[in-house]
Nucleic acid binder design. Structure first.
Lengths: 151, 151
DNA sequence: TATTGTTATACTCTATAACTATA
DNA sequence: TATAGTTATAGAGTATAACAATA
């Protein structure tokens, strides 16, 4: 979706544009590598929170357990994650990043932080504190609205 | 994806969270109505830019013409768009919103603007101008980075 | 020849429902 | 009984490639 020809672009439009640009860039960057957006989300969660069961993964990603089975199948086939037996529950498995993939994700996390810094750098120094406060307030307000609509 | 347990949430994380929350809310709001995200994007473009060929739609949405055929098929079957003959090119068709759907999209556009205002309202008055400037600067910087990566 | 849209085919993501093994 | 994960099935979104009609 392009924006350059819109006259009345709202603040929300700009915020959504940022999300779209980011996602498109990720998709292009990983096109043909087997790192699809859904699989990257799995790896991202495992990097952040460590090994967990598929149930926990399903709750964290807000998808069905069946969906997680498919994603983990693919990631296991490509050697990015490993299914380990759960130490105390023989029904469950622990999904964990392989060492090589953990290193890849650490690098991605670093690049993500660098991109964040680069973007903040585009903001006038005098505006930066206000922007950080404002974006936090907007995200919190939107989260509250969605929570309400959900209930 | 949840954020409440993260300690080092970057500015970019917050921005992406806003996009995720919005998309999730849209998906929940229209679940079971046939208004899927991809079809809504088609309607949104037609509302903004008016009737256009499927080629133009494909370029605007950044998907293949084949994909557009499927989306327009579904939207035509549900009575939301209409395929009209192109006045000067018999190969092409003009996809246009039906009157009823044009009214629905006008209402959505109004609600979208209202949500934008509500979110800006969550920002401290003294910060609002800086936030609007800052988000614009961030979006522009990211667009430039993606453009570079694309080339 | 080039362009518009469609048919053919395939893969990914996602969901629900029924089932197995274990708790 | 309840929970963890898988098999079966299905629909939506997406892509590439080959093709028909028209420019």
């Amino acid at each position: 979706m392009k924006y350059h020809h819109d006259v009345d672009v709202t603040l929300l439009d700009r915020l959504l544009q940022i999300g779209e640009l980011f996602q498109r860039d990720m998709a292009r960057a990983f096109a043909g590598t087997g790192f699809t957006p859904a699989r990257l989300r799995v790896l991202w969660v495992l990097q952040h929170d460590g090994a967990m069961t598929q149930q926990a993964l399903a709750a964290e990603l807000d998808v069905t357990p069946r969906n997680v089975s498919g994603l983990v199948d693919a990631l296991e086939a490509s050697g990015h994650v490993h299914r380990a037996p759960h130490p105390s529950d023989r029904r469950a498995v622990l999904v964990e990043l392989t060492p090589r993939t953990a290193r890849i994700m650490s690098r991605m996390q670093r690049e993500h932080a660098e991109l964040s810094a680069t973007l903040l750098d585009a903001v006038a120094p005098a505006d930066r504190a206000a922007v950080e406060r404002g974006i936090g307030a907007i995200a919190d307000r939107l989260a509250a609205l969605v929570e309400d609509a959900d209930a």
